[in-house]
Design a protein around this nucleic acid. Structure first.
Lengths: 144, 144
DNA sequence: ATCATTGCAAACACTTTGCATACGC
DNA sequence: GCGTATGCAAAGTGTTTGCAATGAT
């Protein structure tokens, strides 16, 4: 959870990714912003602080981090890929009305290393689509 | 499961979609081929029988069917969307080695209409990524 | 000096859209 | 005949790739 700079560098080192400034910035962003950002969102933000930051680097880095298992690429029904650094098992709820995507506690999720029907589990993702609490109760006339 | 022509037309009628020839062909394909095909796969196949079949129609029709809930658009980590006509609750396993995507029986899946933490469920998808039984046991030297 | 990383621009792949033709009630 | 469905070509969007410049050890 509270991943500091040292923890980030350690996580990268562990999988053989050199902790360059760009990579660290991307990791810091993911740890700080728990909204499951897209590559574009990360790029837009980081570009502000470091003007030379390129879209390519964001895409390539996220791909690399996901391959090495340092971050998770979420399977959603959207066209853009969403990423998160929170590796503890949990599900996601996607509101079809306000488009918000947030974490969900799901019971009995399989973990990496588990077996299901003889198949080896590496990743277990739960995506629930529906109408979120806020949109339901408020009828939320502002959104849509 | 065993959805015949009549059942397909009924399903379309129920949500106000006119059962045209193209739409029926796409539905028939989905009912018959349980491999969670992509739009391109469906197009490639149907183009053979009906040469005038267009990619646009396949894309538009699948989108329409998914919106009306007649078929399911699967949330995967792939760039292509996969579709299925099997609406009974189940999960999916995606083998990272052979890329096969197959059904999985998952216990305790929420159903449309259920509530989770106050949120209304419309769709509940489980995607398990890992190494499938076949690839594990055989070490499968052919694939990769 | 060497090898990895970065970043620009161009390429790519999947999907959507604009619009004209053809079809069904 | 009129509204909808179809299909072609073009546009759009998210992501990847080729390649030169830069940076680190």
């Amino acid at each position: 959870m509270g991943m500091n700079l040292q923890a980030i560098c350690d996580a990268l080192d562990r999988v053989g990714i050199r902790p360059t400034q760009q990579r660290i910035e991307i990791m810091k962003y993911l740890v700080k912003h728990r909204v499951h950002p897209t590559a574009e969102m990360i790029y837009a933000e980081l570009k502000q602080t470091i003007p030379t930051f390129s879209k390519t680097t964001v895409y390539n880095t996220l791909k690399l981090l996901a391959e090495k298992g340092v971050v998770l690429a979420l399977a959603t029904d959207e066209d853009q890929v969403r990423y998160e650094a929170n590796l503890t098992p949990h599900g996601h709820f996607k509101c079809v009305r306000c488009d918000d995507l947030f974490d969900l506690t799901i019971a009995d999720m399989a973990s990496p290393g588990d077996e299901i029907e003889g198949n080896l589990v590496l990743e277990y993702q739960v995506l629930v689509k529906g109408v979120c609490r806020r949109c339901r109760t408020a009828e939320n006339p502002v959104l849509d």
